[in-house]
Every structure is written in structure tokens, then in C-alpha cells.
């Protein structure tokens, strides 16, 4: 991607330092470091069970790491909803760092519009009128303006995921975490969702995406991170990582996609 940031030096938005995590006796992450600068798009790839999803969920603390720390704009994130002292609260972190899930997780008891204004109204305490304006703007951007009054169960998978993206964007976040957002979609619906992500990247949105769409990752990201067995095994520009890999496991992994 060749997004030129308009404001001077690139600032670190989100940073993970030495993240470890086990589920019971099963170690999943063995000390992951990753920092994300403003406007950067990082794609995380790797085999199933490599810890990609657990890691991206640690970045907004939906999964609490066993050790290591998450920093948002240089401030350490605590483990409580409210901030304390110099520790940033989870509430504030998540207001600034949005997430989109594999299974959409739309609120089924709310219309499309209600899903999207929920954050601005309930969390940011914006007046409803203002929230509706913001929400409609993003709903239109993902191409679903005419569906604003539909219920989630009346939408296709691709439409649901676009609503979920609009819901995250309506918080006007500094960064977005996309956790395998096309993995639950029928193949013919993947394109419409990737199209939305591509246009976000073009507009300079800072993003981390865990994905199995290797060619999309190559196309849209500034940096590709290959995870294997709970570690970062390789990272670099898409061209180097995906087209000229020197890591053997990465070669094997990629061979399955090129085959």
C-alpha cells in the first residue's frame, strides 16, 4: 500500500510487548511483540492453531494475556474496565480500537441502524441525532443504506459482516482489528467484504487483519506477519514474505495456497 500519512512522522498507535498466553496447560502464545504505526496495515497469516486469533484478541484485551503488555499510544493498558493511575482502562482502549469478528456477532434484537448507533449512543453518549448521522454515513460507505431498518437475520453473511464493520467504524476508532472476517462467508460473498477493507486501507485506516486470504493480504497490507506455534516466525513486506520467503515452514505453508 502506498498510503501517504498527512501528518509528519508515523506514530505508534498500538503495541504488544512479550505477550504470552496459555489455555489451561496448553501454551498458545510464547512472547509476541508487534507494533502498529498510524496508517499501517498488518496482515497476520499462519496455520490453524498458530495463535493468530488469540493474539489479535489480546490486542484489545478480549483475551487477557498471562504476561506482557499492550500499549495504546504509549500508555500501558491495565486489566480493569476503568483506568487507574497511569494504566489505561479497557473501556478506553476499546473505544479507540475497534474489532470485527469472524462470526459478525451482530445484535440480533436490533436493526442495522440500531446496531451501528449502539456504540456512539451507549458508550460515547452522543445525542441520538448525531449518532444516526454518523452511523448512516458508515452504513452508506459499506453500501447498505437501503438496509438500515433490516434485522440481522434478514441479511446475507456478507451484508452482516459489512454492518459489523460499520458498527466498528461508527466509534471512529484509531485502529481496527479484523479477526478472520471472511472465514465464515460463502466464497461468493468474500469479495464484497474485502472490497470494504481495501477502501479502508486506501483511506489510511490503521488495521491488523488475521486472514487466510493470502493474495488479499499481499495486496492490501504494508507488512505481513507469519505466525507459527505461538511465535512470529517471519515478518516483512508482502513482497519479501510472500514471494521470496526463506523460512522453510512459511514456504510449506504458502505452497498450499499456490498449489
Amino acid at each position: 500500500m502506498t498510503t501517504v500519512p498527512t501528518s509528519g512522522a508515523r506514530e505508534t498507535v498500538l503495541e504488544a510487548r512479550g505477550i504470552t498466553k496459555s489455555f489451561g496447560s496448553l501454551p498458545v502464545l510464547h512472547g509476541i511483540d508487534l507494533s502498529l504505526t498510524s496508517g499501517e496495515v498488518v496482515a497476520i497469516i499462519g496455520p490453524s492453531g498458530s495463535g493468530k486469533s488469540t493474539f489479535i484478541r489480546c490486542m484489545n484485551m478480549l483475551e487477557v494475556p498471562d504476561s506482557g503488555e499492550i500499549l495504546f499510544r504509549g500508555r500501558r493498558v491495565g486489566s480493569k474496565f476503568r483506568g487507574a493511575g497511569e494504566l489505561l482502562g479497557l473501556g478506553e482502549l476499546r473505544r479507540h480500537v475497534g474489532m470485527v469478528f469472524q462470526h459478525f456477532n451482530l445484535f440480533p434484537h436490533m436493526s442495522v441502524l440500531e446496531n451501528v448507533i449502539e456504540g456512539p449512543v451507549t458508550v460515547q453518549r452522543k445525542p441520538r441525532g448525531e449518532a444516526v448521522d454518523i452511523a448512516m454515513d458508515y452504513i452508506a460507505k459499506v453500501g447498505l443504506a437501503e438496509k438500515r431498518n433490516a434485522r440481522p437475520d434478514q441479511l446475507s453473511g456478507g451484508q452482516k459482516q459489512r454492518v459489523a464493520i460499520a458498527r466498528a467504524l461508527a466509534m471512529q476508532p484509531d485502529a481496527l482489528l479484523l479477526d478472520e472476517i471472511t472465514s465464515a462467508l460463502d466464497p461468493e460473498l468474500v469479495g464484497e467484504v474485502l472490497g470494504v477493507v481495501r477502501s479502508l486501507a486506501e483511506q489510511g485506516m490503521t488495521m491488523v487483519l488475521v486472514t487466510h486470504e493470502i493474495s488479499f493480504a499481499a495486496d492490501v497490507s504494508d507488512r505481513v506477519v507469519f505466525m507459527e506455534g505461538g511465535r512470529i516466525a517471519e515478518q516483512g513486506s508482502p513482497d519479501r514474505v510472500l514471494h521470496n520467503p526463506d523460512n522453510e515452514r512459511l514456504k510449506t505453508f504458502l505452497a498450499r495456497f499456490h498449489a
Binding site: G91, G98, F107, E118, G119, A168, M171
Partner: peptide
């Protein structure tokens, strides 16, 4: 109620009580 529902609420910055009141209870009551 699916865990993904409370995670989606938490992910937009809701507190535990907001998640309960706005997301979980309305679905659970039904």
C-alpha cells in the same frame, strides 16, 4: 446467549453492566 454477543458489546467499549442491560438481557428475557 452466545459469548460472541458480550464480546461484541465489550469490543465497542461497553462496561459489563452495559453489556448485560443492552445486549444480553433483552435477548435472554425473550
Amino acid at each position: 446467549i452466545d459469548k460472541g454477543q458480550s464480546e461484541a458489546g465489550a469490543a465497542i467499549g461497553m462496561s459489563g453492566w452495559q453489556v448485560m442491560r443492552r445486549i444480553v438481557l433483552p435477548q435472554a428475557i425473550r
